[in-house]
């Protein structure tokens, strides 16, 4: 278990749990003629051609200076639709550091739903084993989070933090916050559980394994 965890921590794309539908979609992915923008359209209904590159998304993005590719450039790369650029998009750090704060979408004069596109790009990035290594922490956190609710149906913060630390191999971050959280009654050691936990597991089973991630 620990070994597996470590290996995945180093390269989350190798995590078969979130990409075991690869076989199912393998045929389609092999079909190199479908460009990422067409996939984006099929899966999210969003047309990247609507974007006229005004840059308002990037201008409003609270994290644009953390990103390796600016949000409007992501759309531009998708618009061009070459294999090289598609790969560049999927292996960008941008799609992972995005906070889903929806500012880009709310400000966009053409109402391009960039957050929805980003959500899809994330799952596609994992599916194609292209996720940016710099994003390992973020991906590990998401996985730890889902792992936590897959198990108990609800978020168990303490467990989440421990699980994440194991994945991220960064045991000491936040440890300083924990004692004061405990004294303020904000961290519990015993997980709250959903009674019908098998149903939650079913939901995970049926969605993660049967769905591409988009629409």
């Amino acid at each position: 278990m620990q070994n597996n965890m470590t290996e995945i921590a180093e390269n989350p794309s190798k995590d078969t749990y979130y990409s075991n539908d690869l076989q199912k979609w393998g045929a389609e992915i092999k079909n190199k003629d479908i460009s990422l923008k067409e996939l984006v359209f099929n899966e999210t209904g969003e047309k990247v051609s609507l974007c006229y590159q005004c840059g308002k998304c990037t201008a409003g993005c609270p994290l644009s200076d953390e990103m390796d590719i600016a949000p409007n450039t992501i759309l531009r790369l998708l618009q061009i639709g070459s294999k090289e650029y598609d790969r560049k998009v999927l292996s960008s750090y941008t799609i992972w550091v995005c906070l889903s704060c929806e500012t880009c979408m709310a400000r966009c004069p053409k109402e391009v739903d960039l957050p929805a596109i980003t959500d899809f790009l994330r799952s596609e990035s994992i599916r194609r084993h292209l996720a940016n290594r710099k994003a390992n922490n973020i991906i590990n956190f998401h996985k730890a989070f889902l792992h936590s609710i897959r198990g108990s149906g609800r978020l168990y913060e303490f467990g989440l933090v421990i699980g994440y630390k194991l994945r991220a191999k960064n045991l000491f971050q936040d440890v300083l916050l924990a004692p004061s959280m405990i004294t303020h009654g904000k961290l519990k050691f015993i997980p709250a559980k959903v009674k019908n936990s098998s149903q939650i597991k079913e939901i995970f089973q049926k969605t993660i394994n049967n769905n591409r991630g988009g629409k």
């Binding site: 840059g55 990037t58 201008a59 644009s64 200076d65 600016a70 409007n72 450039t73």
Partner: peptide, 9 residues
């Protein structure tokens, strides 16, 4: 944002 400068904010 300056889209001619690599979309720099």
């Amino acid at each position: 944002v300056d889209t001619l400068l690599n979309s720099t904010p």
